[in-house]
Design a protein around this nucleic acid. Sequence first.
DNA 1: TATTGTTATACTCTATAACTATA
DNA 2: TATAGTTATAGAGTATAACAATA
Lengths: 142, 142
Amino acid sequence: MAENSHRAPTSPTVDALVQLSFTVQLVLTRVAAQHDLSVTQLRLLGILRDRTPTMAAIAAFLELDRSSVSGLIDRAERRGLVARHTSEKDARVTLVEATPAGFAVARQIAATVSDSLETLLAAASPVDRASLEKLAATLPQP
Amino acid sequence: MAENSHRAPTSPTVDALVQLSFTVQLVLTRVAAQHDLSVTQLRLLGILRDRTPTMAAIAAFLELDRSSVSGLIDRAERRGLVARHTSEKDARVTLVEATPAGFAVARQIAATVSDSLETLLAAASPVDRASLEKLAATLPQP
DNA sequence: TATTGTTATACTCTATAACTATA
DNA sequence: TATAGTTATAGAGTATAACAATA
């Protein structure tokens, strides 16, 4: 038997996908940390860039329990990044909106992430870039 | 001014990379959850498939503080997935090894992740796959 | 009654600082 | 003294269960 019987053979494409994913997450984690934020808070700010969603919508988007989102918004609110508003149509519903400070942080983070990833992609050919874009566009949501 | 002044223009390749990354992480999170594990524990088991590293090596690999790794290994050990051994060469050093149960879980997880991602990749052409593999191989570590 | 959100509780994950044991 | 690892502590993130307010 080979030296290592624990490693099941897996496709090189799958390996590439997983490795790529962790590289991107590492970049996101580091950039978020520069602003003393978690990747989840970073995602939250991303969502709020062009939406004013309900708590439930945020939970659905992030695939979190609504109680987890309550805590998430509590902490973001405490830091002045987001604000809660009660819906005028349905008093049960809470809408979440980024504050000007929240938008500013979101912009900075997006710019830094973009720069970092572009630097990593420096060696990628236009054809490989196009493949990557096509792949992302056609990949079904799991 | 446009409807939304908060969204800075970013490259489609960067967007693709980020989206792809979150898709993969979602798959990993779900598969890990099926075994009541976190993605970090999943990564740990992945590392231990072909290594018996020191605590410090695990910390370096996962980019965590050594104290965080102590807790991580505590919890994995409590669940019977890994075991600690003191190095015979240097009594300060602790080596971490997967147990048979740990290897079994690692194998199952790897198989499920592989299946899930292959399903997602069903529509990807051989050329696009090759591009993805090349990209992962040439991407510098950030 | 059903839905929206919060709270109480418990656990994992993580870091910082202080510590122990060994080299 | 320096290094490897642990412990104490604190906080973020997450889920489950129970709850209040509103529909």
